[in-house]
C-alpha cells in the first residue's frame, strides 16, 4: 500500500512576519522555514498506519517548495518516512489554492497512491481548502478533520471531529484524508532517523514530468489576486493585576469586567 503525505514548508510560527509591498507576498527570505506543524500529525498518522498495516506499505512525502525546502522534508524522513518528492520550479511561486491543488494532483497521479494524508490547514495561509481541492481534481473521496483513522480491507473509516462530537465517515480507497491536530502525538526525529534521512531519496519532480501546464500554475494559474493590504494596529497592552491575596485579585478582575460591561 502506498501512503502519500502532502506537507508544506511554512515560516516559523514564532517569527515576525512581513509582506513585501511590491509582490504582495510574504517576505520569506529573512524567516526560518519549518515544517507546517499541522502536517506533523499527518506524517505521524501515516507512519502509524504503515506500522499497523505492515507488508510493503510505504510512506512518501510530497511537497511543493523551493530547493531549500529539502530541510523540512528531511525532518519528515527523519521521523521515518521512506522517501520524498519535491515539486520545485521557480514558476510555481505565487500559486494559490487552485494552482497548488492542480500541481499536487498532477504530482500524485505521477507518483501513484492508495491513500493521501494531509494536515487540516497550514499555519501561514490557513485556507483549509487544498485537501478537498486535490481530492476533487483526482476524483477520489475526501474525508476531512479526522481525529481517528482506521484502515481495513481497502476501506478507510474516520471519526470526523465536529463542534458537538464526531461523525463516522467511511470510503473505499483510494482516498484523501485530512487529520486534525491532536489525532496523535508526533514523534521526534530520532538521532538515527536524522542520520538515516541523509541517505533517503528526495526526488525532484519537474513540471514536464508531472505534465503541469504553465497556464495553470503560479500567478497565471491563480484565480485569487491580492489587491492591497494594510497592517492591523497593535493591540493595547493588557492590564496585569498583581496582588498577594487571590480573593482581592478576583474582586479586582470582577470590578474591571463590570466596568467594561462585559458581565
Amino acid at each position: 500500500m502506498k501512503i502519500v503525505v502532502t506537507v508544506k514548508q511554512v515560516p516559523d510560527t514564532n517569527a515576525e512576519k512581513a509582506l513585501d509591498p511590491k509582490t504582495k507576498r510574504l517576505n520569506r527570505s529573512s524567516i526560518e522555514n519549518v515544517l507546517n506543524p499541522f502536517d506533523e500529525y499527518a506524517i505521524e498518522e501515516g507512519l502509524r498506519l504503515r506500522e499497523s498495516v505492515g507488508g510493503d506499505t510505504t510512506v512518501t512525502i510530497l511537497t511543493m517548495a523551493p530547493a531549500s525546502g529539502t530541510e523540512v522534508v528531511r525532518k519528515a524522513l527523519g521521523m521515518g518516512a521512506d522517501s520524498a518528492a519535491l515539486i520545485s520550479d521557480e514558476s510555481v511561486g505565487g500559486s494559490d489554492t487552485m494552482a497548488t491543488s492542480y500541481l499536487l494532483a498532477q504530482a500524485l497521479r505521477h507518483i501513484g497512491f492508495d491513500l493521501v494524508l494531509s494536515g487540516t490547514q497550514s499555519t501561514d495561509a490557513i485556507n483549509s481548502v487544498v485537501p478537498a481541492a486535490v481530492a476533487e481534481r483526482l476524483g477520489i473521496p475526501c474525508l476531512t478533520f479526522a481525529k481517528k483513522v482506521t484502515l481495513s480491507d481497502g476501506r478507510i473509516e474516520i471519526q470526523r471531529e465536529t463542534e458537538s462530537g464526531f461523525w463516522r465517515v467511511a470510503a473505499r480507497l483510494p482516498a484523501m484524508v485530512s487529520v486534525t491536530k491532536g489525532i496523535n502525538e508526533p514523534r521526534y526525529p530520532t538521532l538515527k532517523g536524522i542520520m538515516g534521512a541523509k541517505k533517503k531519496e528526495i526526488k525532484t519532480l519537474s513540471l514536464a514530468e508531472i505534465g503541469a501546464e504553465p497556464a495553470r500554475i503560479g500567478d497565471a494559474g491563480s484565480k485569487t489576486q491580492v489587491d492591497s493590504f494594510a497592517t492591523v494596529g497593535a493591540r493595547a497592552k493588557g492590564t496585569v493585576i498583581t496582588v498577594s491575596d487571590p480573593k482581592e485579585g478576583a474582586r479586582q478582575v470582577l470590578d474591571f469586567l463590570i466596568a467594561k460591561k462585559a458581565i
Binding site: T70, K75, L191, I194, M195, K198
Partner: peptide, 14 residues
C-alpha cells in the same frame, strides 16, 4: 550541514 541543522532543531524542541 543540513542534517546537523535538523539535529539542532529537533533537539531544541526535545
Amino acid at each position: 550541514p543540513e542534517e546537523l541543522k535538523l539535529l539542532k532543531r529537533s533537539l531544541r524542541e526535545f
